[in-house]
Design a protein around this nucleic acid. Structure first.
Length: 912
RNA sequence: GCCCAUGUGGCGGAAUUGGUAGACGCAGCAGACUCAAAAUCUGCCGUUCGCAAGGGCGUGAAGGUUCGAUUCCUUUCGUGGGCACCA
């Protein structure tokens, strides 16, 4: 009987499906465990080997928790709204709904072949009206709420309206409020809503007549067509995530994310404490507000820099400078934020002609504009201190602005020094004060003089929440006379209308603006962004078919937080912050009972592609093996061509397959071999179709089986680590599973397993394995767990152990990793029930007790020998044994050791 | 540029987190079984000196702390991810 994985896997997948083995109940006496993957965007390329990495890890964990007695929720769904489907529609005319449907079918069949334990009855799709009805409903909750600064939480906007009607606000009286027009009232309320509408800048491409994503803009021109792209102000929707900045920071203390992930979120939020100060302008009424975290450097300010988009630029620019400023503004408009930040070496800027007055000493300082200052951060203006800030210094040198030194010897005249440890000089009332101390003194002075105030600043901006696109959730909003009016709950979902064309509307509005019916109803024409649906999907899985509410409160109280969330770091700041914010809002409004969605986060690494290249002699059909490319006549005379990684074995090209590849494009190729082989070059790149480095899991599952595929993906390395995909090692894992099989059945002899009683050596192997697998599985250390299984099976094979008492326990341990083969063997050794619900083996330490240990003995930290010493031995005994050892005596050469270090159970080090 | 991660044999990686560097697997080499092939099994497998015993070197690079450093600190180089309309 041989290991016929194809038959076994199909059989069990069917049986599990028939008896609903993965159905999850919301009603159980068992403890709950919620294991979630970041759901995929169903792209047209299908699943590649990178996708399943995290899915397999979470599947193993789910199955393991189930064996340990938990009621496990492990769902899967699709993030099916998004830009790629729309771009594909523009290119091919196929409707996104159709392509998305097709892609999801492909994804599902691919996922099923790998044998995941999903409860498909709980599947969700963000583009399904039954789902996005609740996305729209939640948007309305955000729209109808404001952030109460006293309570530090979201409250219904009606409470604010009542307050305005009854007592007014800081800025207006109740009588004022009641006298305002509807539009004026709406505008004031809009400034407090958690989902609000305002004006923002977008990438505008005049030639395409559309707004573009940053990804669609390359070096200032559109990716499609290469047309110029400029910034344009348009009405947009935003989420007031900045209101939650502090709570998003505090919440990080309560969750189990990696430190690096928390760092990334903290940096994104970018909280800083400093002062906002006003500089008056000489001969002009304007005042420029700057934000600084270093008010101690105020006497070192040699110029001010405004962001080119700053609203005062126009007002303060002098006649002489007008032309130059306009020219500079045109230049800036063509550059993306990312370019502006990245190209630091290229110093650009322009003098406005205006001078500001230093509020402390009255010194006149020139006002410049430069693109290294971003409008979105702080006040969009900075005070430049060249002796303390390198960018300011570079700018000053480039434009010959004299540098004031306030830090004495700490400044060498050649580069800035951002120290806080200098004693201040040339600094008026701060002279002689240590900079660290001067910060607080300067703050007090600013307060005292009334020229500014202390301020906490955040780098984070409110989140743009509208897209001028078709394939997204419509906003449940109508516009009447400039007032945004929400739809009533019973009008939801507002369904996305079916269209045949996806081109932008007039003035760059979304494609919905082309629909007469839509415009007649005065519906909002933009749609929600990709992250709308993904900001709350983890709640819908709990109660996916509820028509009355997004998720019943009793159900969300039961499942509560996601216990483990698995996904890539690329979502570190976007998706994770948005879903954390939505959760906090829902918590504030009493819709759910917890305010952090994810208790623990596991970051999976990226699987990169391993590209292969062949080298062709220029202008010929002759190909040269990799080792010969830089030799003789070939040097510098070859082109490098991507070749399909699937027709290369390691680095050796399969010549027959190559000739057939791409419908025989290289059919008449000739090859110059080395040592009888044709070798390719290797490079690690992003996995992508165009680089011919994608590997389809289907092919591997067909060839080796799902169990082998699952274990091999885990064996590649730690889940958190990025690594290039290489199919080469999969044979080893397959061999291992066949070896496991042979402990039960022999190809010739048939059944070999027995009911004999195991001996101590066999129990030792088993319990060593239980201990290792249990802790590795709990800690997501799956590569070492696979290795431990291999060691265990190797040892059992060496011991010729075919005993059921040992083997059935091994089957339970391995069931989360290789469920099909485990279930097959479990059933064939006549166990009743399914291995999916077996009781997890319990580790017993008594089998691992040892009488002695081979201690490594080092001389001066270098290993020289090992000595077998009783496990219980203490220092004096060990000392005597070590000194009596031949090798140690040889190294001592008659001398006394200076010191002997003994770490019980670890090692001995003799210092000479 | 800023933020985060990472660097160990020919390759993927391991190392109880300061205590035997290279577990496990791939590839390779040698052998057994076979008419042959596949499958399987056995041995070798960082580098260098040496017949051997044994020694030197070795975790991107350079310093430092320590009895002892892949692990901690400083500096530096390379690679990957993110940077707000890709998801």
């Amino acid at each position: 009987m041989e290991y016929n994985f194809r038959e076994i896997e199909v059989k069990w997948q069917q049986r599990w499906k028939e008896r609903n083995a993965y159905a999850v109940s919301n009603d159980s006496t068992k403890p709950k465990c919620y294991v979630l993957d970041m759901f995929p965007y169903p792209s047209g390329a299908g699943l590649h080997v990178g996708h399943p990495l995290g899915y397999i890890a979470s599947d193993i964990y789910s199955r393991y928790k189930r064996l340990k007695g938990f009621n496990v929720l492990h769902p899967m769904g699709f993030d099916s709204f998004g830009l790629p489907a729309e771009q594909y529609a523009i290119e091919t005319g196929q409707h996104p709904a159709d392509t998305t449907e097709k892609n999801i079918a492909t994804f599902k069949s691919q996922l099923d072949k790998i044998g995941f334990c999903y409860d498909w009855d709980r599947e969700i799709r963000t583009s399904d009206p039954k789902y996005y009805k609740w996305t729209q409903w939640l948007f309305l909750q955000l729209f109808n709420s404001y952030f109460c600064n006293t309570q530090q939480k979201a409250r219904p906007i009606d409470e604010l309206i009542k307050k305005y009607e009854g007592q007014g606000s800081k800025h207006f009286t109740a009588a004022d409020w009641n006298g305002y027009t509807k539009k004026e009232q709406a505008d004031i309320l809009m400034q407090r809503r958690l989902a609000f509408s305002s004006f923002g800048e977008v990438n505008w491409c005049e030639s395409l007549g559309t707004v573009l994503a940053n990804d669609e803009v390359i070096n200032g021109v559109s990716e499609r067509g290469g047309f110029p792209v400029v910034k344009k102000k348009m009405r947009q929707w935003y989420l007031r995530i900045t209101a939650y900045a502090d709570r998003l920071l505090q919440g990080l203390e309560t969750v189990d994310f990696s430190d690096s992930m928390k760092d990334m979120q903290r940096n994104w939020i970018g909280k800083s404490e400093g002062a906002e100060m006003e500089f008056t302008i000489e001969d002009a009424p304007a005042k420029i507000k700057v934000y600084t975290t270093r008010p101690d450097t105020i006497f070192g300010v040699d110029f001010l820099v405004l962001a080119p988009e700053h609203e005062l630029v126009n007002d303060i620019t002098t006649k002489d400078q007008r032309e130059k400023i306009d020219e500079y503004l045109r230049y800036v408009k063509s550059r993306s934020d990312r370019e502006r930040m990245a190209e630091v070496k290229q110093v650009t800027g322009c003098f406005t002609g205006a001078y500001a007055v230093n509020p402390f000493d009255g010194k006149l300082i020139p006002v410049w504009i430069a693109d290294y200052v971003l409008a979105g951060y702080g006040t969009g203006a900075i005070m430049a201190v060249p002796c303390g800030d390198q960018r300011d210094y570079t700018f000053a040198k480039h434009f010959n602005i004299p540098v004031t030194n306030t830090i004495g010897g700490h400044y060498n005249g050649e580069e800035a020094n951002p120290t806080k440890d200098a004693v201040l000089e040339n600094s008026g009332f701060l002279n002689g004060v240590l900079m660290k101390d001067a910060i607080a003194i300067a703050m007090d002075k600013i307060d005292e003089l009334g020229i500014g105030r202390r301020k906490i600043n955040y780098r984070m901006r409110d989140a743009g929440f509208s897209r001028q696109r078709y394939w997204g959730e419509p906003f449940p909003i109508k516009w009447h006379d400039g007032i945004a009016t929400p739809l009533a709950e019973d009008e939801l979902p507002l369904e996305l209308p079916y269209v045949k064309k996806y081109s932008a509307g007039p003035e760059g509005e979304g494609p919905l603006a082309n629909i007469a019916d839509w415009m007649g109803n005065k519906f909002e024409t933009s749609t929600m962004p990709g992250y709308a649906g993904s900001s709350w999907y983890f709640l819908r899985y709990m109660d996916p078919n509820n028509d009355a509410i997004f998720c019943d409160r009793k159900v969300s109280d039961y499942w509560n937080q996601v216990d483990v969330y698995i996904g890539g770091t690329e979502h570190a700041v976007g998706h994770l912050l948005y879903s954390r914010m939505w959760t906090k809002v829902m918590y504030d409004l009493g819709l759910i009972g917890f305010d952090e969605p994810f208790r623990k986060l596991v970051n999976q690494g990226m699987i990169q592609g391993s590209s292969r290249f062949v080298n062709r002699v220029k202008g010929t059909t002759t190909f040269v093996s990799a080792g010969l490319v830089n030799t003789g006549e070939f040097e510098g005379n070859t082109d490098r061509i991507h070749v399909d990684v699937n027709i290369v074995d390691g680095t050796e090209l399969n010549l027959t397959a190559f000739k057939k590849w791409k419908n025989g494009e290289f059919g008449n190729a000739e090859f110059i071999l080395e040592n009888g082989k044709f070798l390719t070059e290797v490079e690690t790149e992003k996995m992508s179709k165009s680089k011919f480095n994608t590997v389809n899991p289907d092919e591997l599952v067909n060839k080796y089986g799902a169990d082998t595929f699952r274990m091999y993906e885990m064996f590649l390395g730690p889940v958190e680590m990025s690594k290039p995909w290489d199919t080469k090692g999969i044979e080893g894992v397959h061999r291992f599973l066949r070896k496991l099989w042979r402990l039960f059945f022999d190809e010739v002899k048939g059944k070999v397993w027995t009911n004999d009683t195991p001996d101590n050596a066999e129990f030792k192997v088993l319990h060593k394995t239980i201990k290792k697998i249990d802790s590795d599985t709990e800690q997501f250390s799956y590569n070492t767990a696979v290795s431990a299984f291999m060691i265990s099976v190797n040892e059992l094979a060496d011991l010729k152990c075919y005993k059921k008492d040992i083997l059935e326990k091994i089957l339970i341990l391995i069931a989360p990793y290789a469920p099909h083969v485990a279930e097959e063997l479990w059933n064939s050794i006549s166990n009743t029930g399914s291995v999916l619900d077996a009781a997890y083996p319990v580790f017993d330490a008594q089998y691992l007790v040892e009488a002695s240990k081979d201690y490594p003995v080092s001389i001066n930290g270098k290993l020289r020998t090992t000595i077998s010493i009783a496990t219980a031995a203490e220092e004096p005994e060990v000392r005597a044994q070590v000194l009596a050892n031949e090798v140690v005596q040889k190294w001592l050469d008659g001398k006394e050791p200076k010191k002997i270090i003994f770490v019980k159970g670890k090692m001995v080090n003799v210092v000479i």
